[in-house]
């Protein structure tokens, strides 16, 4: 598998077939006397922003803390939770109550809940 080609930036699909973001980063663990291994995939706006510049990353972290919808501007999914890396990346998580869909839930409950139809 080519990590950059086959994993990075791909669509994440949770166990209920919901789109729950994209693979914004890959966490590699360096081990002594052993080859490195993929520990996790990362998502969140701070991870995206880091790939543009450190300044954007700092801005994303500060903005994320101020808004306070997500507990952290970064979210890691252990590589063991990755089920398939085909067209999309299927992960064994329930994203409904997890950080990837925190904004989705917040908008639904705080903005669209008041829509009468």
């Amino acid at each position: 598998m080519k990590l950059i080609n086959d994993v990075l930036d791909k669509q994440l699909i949770d166990r209920d077939c919901r789109k729950c973001g994209r693979v914004d980063g890959i966490v590699i663990e360096l081990r002594e006397d052993e080859p490195p291994r993929v520990a996790a995939i990362e998502c969140g706006f701070a991870v995206c922003a880091r790939r543009v510049s450190e300044r954007w990353e700092r801005f994303a972290v500060v903005a994320g803390k101020r808004l306070g919808v997500r507990k952290s501007p970064r979210y890691r999914i252990a590589w063991e939770k990755v089920l398939d890396t085909g067209l999309d990346i299927d992960v064994d998580i329930d994203s409904e109550d997890a950080p990837p869909l925190a904004w989705e839930k917040w908008i639904r409950e705080h903005i669209f809940a008041k829509v009468p139809f």
């Binding site: 904004w103 989705e104 839930k105 908008i107 639904r108 903005i111 669209f112």
Partner: peptide, 8 residues
């Protein structure tokens, strides 16, 4: 409501 960010 299911695609709240898209709708927003």
């Amino acid at each position: 409501q299911r695609e709240a960010r898209f709708a927003l």
